[in-house]
Simulated scan of single mutants.
Amino acid sequence: MSSQEQVTIVLAVGAALVVLLLWQVLRRRNLQQGFVSERDRATYETLHTASLAGRHLSGGLDESGAERALPHLRELLATPALALTGRRRILAWDGVGDHHRDQVHDAAVEHLGDGKVAVVNTLECNDPDCQVRSAVLAPIRVRDSIVGQLVALGEHPSAGLSRATEEVAGWIATQVELADLSADRTRAMEAELRALRAQISPHFIYNSLGAIASFVRTDPDRARELLLEFADFTRYALRQGGASTTVAEELRNVERYLVLEQARFGERLQLQMKVAPEALPTRVPYLAIQPLVENAVRHGLAPKAGTGTVVLTARDVGAEAEISVEDDGVGSDPERIQQVLDGETRTDSVGLGNVDARLRQTYGDEHGLVVETASGAGMKVTFRVPKFAPDA
């Protein structure tokens, strides 16, 4: 399990524990049918309300998410009004007393750097019926930085309200940190993909254009066909869009790649494909298979004298699809390959470490590449992905 996944799990568990504590400070509710006790009912309502708020904070702490989450958070705290601030301004306000917005903003600015719960007992107001006379401000701390405050507003502050506001602010902080981790993961995967494109393109484009040029005079029709295959391959490899595709689309791109490589290697390069129809709709990270085939051709078969074979297999294994790329080329030192996968060495082995990293980021460490190789004994690279996982 990666360190980022461990942090995510710890944060998620922590958020759940915070939510479970909140029922202790909720007002007592009437027992409704279907619950053994009033405590069960309060716990259920707290968890349900928190889940409704959490979905709106999945994108981080912004105005749109704050406006949608705040009514649910106010229900948790049962206050006349509730505000959520960022570092510089109020993001959202729910409930009565909106005319206190400027006073609350000033109080939030004053106490932002305190790093602890603050209570403001005197909010000036000319309305004798106004329910907002005080404010409890709890910091929202993410990675040792205060990114905002949760402000509970009412007539009289209490120790229970202060504690509950602090707990909810801690829960919000956890949701924001989870959103940040998700954004970091997405950015890392996009960077990996850009790096892979940059790595593949120079090698392959140069070799392909050289092969096409060799046919221009001797076989113009063949050159035209190869040029179309080259255009389709590069259009797919350099496309902008989602981070995932299907096994079927990846295999079509592998076929384009191998047509171009066979123009260069001729009969020296042989291909066998064994594909289970059930595996074809499975979604995989974009450019997860072709780089493995290119690695087999460039580093396994190109240095080998005589004919070499690449065997590409897509198997249906219950809830997963298994993809393997095997060659009978020159093989490699297993320790060197492990260093590549661990990111401990620089290499021109196209995409092996890159694909492994993206698989682990998407599905977890147990879905990384499994490499079987030895010097002079070829190489087999295998990975498994869930057939029914959400889009990678």
Rank of each mutant, 00 (worst) to 15 (best):
A16C: 05
V18T: 11
V18K: 09
V18E: 01
V19C: 11
L21P: 01
L21Y: 04
L21D: 06
L21N: 13
L21T: 05
L22P: 05
L22G: 14
W23I: 12
W23F: 14
W23G: 10
Q24A: 11
R27G: 10
R28M: 07
R28A: 09
R28Y: 10
R28T: 03
R28V: 00
L31W: 11
Q33W: 10
Q33L: 15
G34C: 13
G34E: 05
F35T: 05
F35H: 10
F35W: 03
F35E: 03
V36C: 00
V36P: 00
V36H: 03
S37R: 13
E38T: 04
E38I: 06
R39D: 13
R39H: 10
D40G: 11
R41K: 11
A42N: 11
T43H: 05
T43G: 12
Y44F: 12
Y44W: 13
T46R: 05
T46S: 15
L47W: 00
L47I: 06
T49L: 15
T49I: 08
A50P: 00
S51N: 13
S51C: 06
L52W: 14
L52Y: 14
A53M: 09
G54M: 09
R55N: 10
R55P: 02
R55H: 09
H56G: 06
H56C: 04
H56T: 02
H56M: 04
L57D: 02
L57W: 14
S58W: 11
S58A: 15
G59L: 09
G59S: 12
G60P: 01
G60H: 08
G60F: 06
L61K: 07
L61W: 12
L61P: 07
D62F: 02
E63D: 03
S64Q: 03
G65Y: 12
A66D: 00
A66Q: 00
A66S: 02
E67R: 14
E67I: 10
R68K: 11
R68A: 08
A69M: 08
A69G: 04
A69P: 03
A69C: 09
A69F: 04
L70N: 10
L70S: 08
L70K: 06
P71I: 00
P71C: 02
P71D: 05
H72E: 10
H72I: 05
H72D: 13
L73F: 08
R74D: 06
E75P: 03
L76I: 02
L76K: 06
L76N: 10
L76C: 15
L77K: 11
A78H: 15
T79A: 15
T79F: 14
P80L: 15
P80W: 14
A81W: 06
A81S: 15
A81G: 09
A81L: 13
L82I: 12
A83D: 00
A83Q: 01
L84T: 05
L84I: 07
L84D: 01
T85I: 01
T85R: 01
G86F: 01
